[in-house]
């Protein structure tokens, strides 16, 4: 199961990267989300041990590791806020450059 999980996360990451690199700006936004999903899954896998039940006080079975969960929770929320901002920027870029192609956005160069 470990190998399958690792493969799935790797595939997810690869799909995310590929989308992220595409010219269509909307697709790169999609890629960003897939990437952050992959990374959140990976972060959960950094938990120190495998749990059988959620981390609730009083349950005698082995809890899952609460620390990465709390961190992932924060990461999910923050990336959500960042994503909304990126979408707004993307929308602004499209209107300003009259193009949905990230290669047309080349005024970064001073």
């Amino acid at each position: 199961m470990e190998l399958l999980t690792a493969l799935a996360i790797g595939l997810l990451f690869a799909f995310g990267l590929y989308q992220f690199l595409r010219r269509n700006l909307i697709r790169s936004a999609v890629g960003l989300i897939i990437l952050s999903n992959a990374i959140n899954l990976f972060l959960l896998s950094t938990g120190a041990y495998r749990g059988l039940v959620p981390a609730y006080v009083g349950d005698p079975l082995q809890h899952s590791d609460a620390l990465p969960q709390a961190l992932v929770l924060t990461a999910v929320v923050i990336s959500m806020g960042g994503f909304a901002f990126i979408t707004a920027m993307l929308s602004g870029i499209v209107h300003r450059y009259r193009s949905g192609d990230s290669d047309d956005v080349s005024q970064l160069k001073g």
Binding site: L3, A6, I9, G10, F13, F15, Y18, S45, T46, R50
Partner: peptide, 21 residues
């Protein structure tokens, strides 16, 4: 590029998962 990234991600995850607990 994506394949290379995915490969290393899978490797890192596998190391992380198999070194538990």
């Amino acid at each position: 590029l994506a394949a290379a990234g995915g490969l290393w991600m899978a490797a890192v995850t596998l190391i992380s998962l198999t070194s538990r607990p």
